[in-house]
């Protein structure tokens, strides 16, 4: 399968994808870097001047920056924790024999298909609203004062909403992995005297490691840039309590029209993502090699 002709063809066939992705990565990124060194505000056309590291300085000293960084990490880790642990438990449950397994699966998978703007609005208004929301009604019925989720615990509420959207994904992947576990392995362990708990920790969990890696990798990619959920629920507030980096950059560049500052923020976000990526790539490197 490897003649010179086919190798040349191979290079030819892969080049459109490589070139397009390269351009997609390098052109806008180069422009972002360039803008990040300019004083550049869309409201003051023609006023671009070189600014050195001024934008970075402003961005890092922006009182919103550290909270945004913190919120980004909390959001990613919180959702990952809920979905991975919840996903493993749910997968174990769904792997048991039961009546109507197909329907249960259909129900569990459904939130994955719901677009972020819809799920955020539905949760915000119909569940978390302190007056008319379903949670408020439950609280009142039980004799508690209704809790104003999005004002009192905005980040936590957003974590809940996002986790609801991603739990099906984690569950399905982990369930698929669990079902591929060779039952003879478990039987062998049982013969060797391993109880259900040790079977879980010594056989099932290691078997799930690879799937969990996929779950974490893919979710992280998406979670680092959660945007719509914040936009339609809290607009990053109250204050900056639910502003993540993505939202911060968005508000600086497209709401305050400060292209220079927004670009500096964008570069910071890229660097952060790359740090995370290096960790993740190490992980896949280890777990996905077969």
């Amino acid at each position: 399968m490897a003649t010179q002709a086919s190798r040349a063809a191979g290079r030819l066939m892969i080049s459109p994808a490589v070139i397009l992705l390269f351009l997609w990565m390098i052109v806008p990124l180069g422009m972002t870097i360039w803008f990040s060194f300019l004083r550049y505000n869309l409201l003051i056309p023609g006023g671009e001047t070189f600014a050195g590291f001024e934008n970075y300085h402003y961005f890092f000293t922006d009182p919103n920056f550290w909270p945004a960084l913190w919120n980004t990490l909390t959001l990613v880790l919180g959702v990952l924790l809920i979905t991975t642990v919840g996903g493993i438990l749910l997968a174990l449950l769904l792997d048991q024999p039961m009546f109507g397994q197909g329907i249960v699966r259909v129900l569990v998978i459904a939130p994955f298909f719901v677009m972020p703007t819809v799920s955020a609005l539905v949760w915000k208004n119909m569940f978390m609203n302190p007056v008319n929301g379903l949670f408020a009604w439950i609280a009142r019925t039980l004799g508690f004062a209704p809790f104003d989720f999005l004002s009192a615990a905005p980040l936590f509420s957003i974590i809940l909403i996002v986790a609801w959207q991603w739990l099906p994904f984690a569950t399905l992947i982990l369930l698929t992995a669990l079902q591929s576990l060779d039952s003879e392995q478990l039987e062998a362990a049982e013969m060797d005297g391993a109880g259900p708990v040790s079977r879980f920790f010594y056989i099932m969990l290691p078997h799930l490691a690879r799937a969990a890696t996929v779950v974490i990798l893919i979710q992280t990619i998406f979670l680092l840039s959660v945007f719509a959920e914040i936009l339609v629920t809290t607009n990053g507030g109250p204050g900056n309590a639910s502003t993540n980096l993505t939202y911060l950059v968005y508000s600086q560049s497209l709401l305050q029209y400060d292209v220079g500052l927004g670009s500096a923020g964008g570069i910071v976000a890229v660097i952060l993502a790359n740090i995370v990526a290096i960790f993740l790539m190490r992980m896949i490197g280890k777990n996905l090699e077969t």
Binding site: V27, P28, L29, M31, S253, G266, V270, M281
Partner: peptide
């Protein structure tokens, strides 16, 4: 290729928008 997926959209929002 996968790593380009790691690049947060917000990092290129401004230039793409412009």
């Amino acid at each position: 290729m996968l790593s380009t997926k790691m690049m947060p959209a917000v990092g290129v929002l401004v230039p793409i928008y412009l």
